[in-house]
C-alpha cells in the first residue's frame, strides 16, 4: 500500500470534516492534526467504525469522549437527547455523513466508484481500544473548546 494513498485520501477526509462540521453543526473546528497534546480523548470513549471496501480496503475510526459526542448529537437533535441510544445513533449518522462526503470526493476524483462504505458500528466503554491489524493509517485531530474528535483513516494492502 502506497503511503501516498493514505495521505492523499486522508486529505479528502480532512476536507470532509471541515465542510460537515460547518454545514451540520455550524462549528468551525480547529485542525489540530500533529498537535495531539492539544486534544483530550480519555476516559469513557465513544468510537465509530465505518469500513471501506472496493478497490481499497480500510476503515474510518472516529474517536471522541462521551462528552464531545453529546455536544455533537445535541446540536444534531436540536436539543437534549430523548433516549440514551440516540447518542450512538446520531454519532453513527455524523460519521456516516462525514465519510460519505469524503468517499464522494475520492470516487469523483477517480471518476468511478472505487470505494464503498459499510454501515457504522458504534462502541463505547472504559479503556476502549480499537485496532485494525495490517493497515497504514493517518491521524487527523480537530477541536474547539471542549469538543475534540480524532479521525484515524487506515487502508490495507490491495
Amino acid at each position: 500500500m502506497s503511503e501516498n494513498i493514505v495521505e492523499i485520501y486522508g486529505e479528502y477526509f480532512r476536507r470532509a470534516v471541515e465542510e460537515i462540521s460547518t454545514e451540520l453543526l455550524d462549528i468551525k473546528l480547529n485542525d489540530l492534526s500533529g498537535k495531539e497534546d492539544r486534544i483530550s480523548i480519555h476516559g469513557k470513549k465513544l468510537d465509530v467504525i465505518i469500513g471501506m471496501t472496493g478497490d481499497y480496503k480500510g476503515r474510518l475510526l472516529l474517536e471522541s469522549t462521551e462528552e464531545s459526542a453529546r455536544t455533537i448529537t445535541e446540536i444534531m437533535n436540536f436539543g437534549t437527547l430523548e433516549r440514551e441510544s440516540d447518542l450512538y445513533l446520531y454519532m453513527g449518522e455524523f460519521a456516516n455523513i462525514l465519510s460519505g462526503r469524503a468517499i464522494t470526493f475520492i470516487n469523483n476524483s477517480n471518476q468511478k466508484k472505487i470505494i464503498r462504505l459499510t454501515p457504522p458500528a458504534i462502541f463505547s466503554g472504559v479503556d476502549l481500544e480499537i485496532t485494525t491489524p495490517n493497515i497504514e493509517f493517518i491521524n487527523l485531530c480537530f477541536g474547539k473548546d471542549d469538543l475534540h474528535i480524532r479521525l484515524n483513516i487506515g487502508f490495507g494492502g490491495v
Binding site: 451540520l24 455523513i97 465519510s99 460519505g100 462526503r101 468517499i103 464522494t104 469523483n108
Partner: peptide
C-alpha cells in the same frame, strides 16, 4: 444522500427521480 456520487444519481434518474439534495 450522504454520498452524492454520480453512479447512484444516474441509477435514480433512470427510475424517474428528478430532485436530489446532499446530506447535510
Amino acid at each position: 444522500s450522504a454520498m452524492g456520487d454520480d453512479a447512484l444519481i444516474e441509477e435514480a434518474k433512470e427510475i424517474g427521480v428528478k430532485h436530489f439534495i446532499p446530506k447535510p
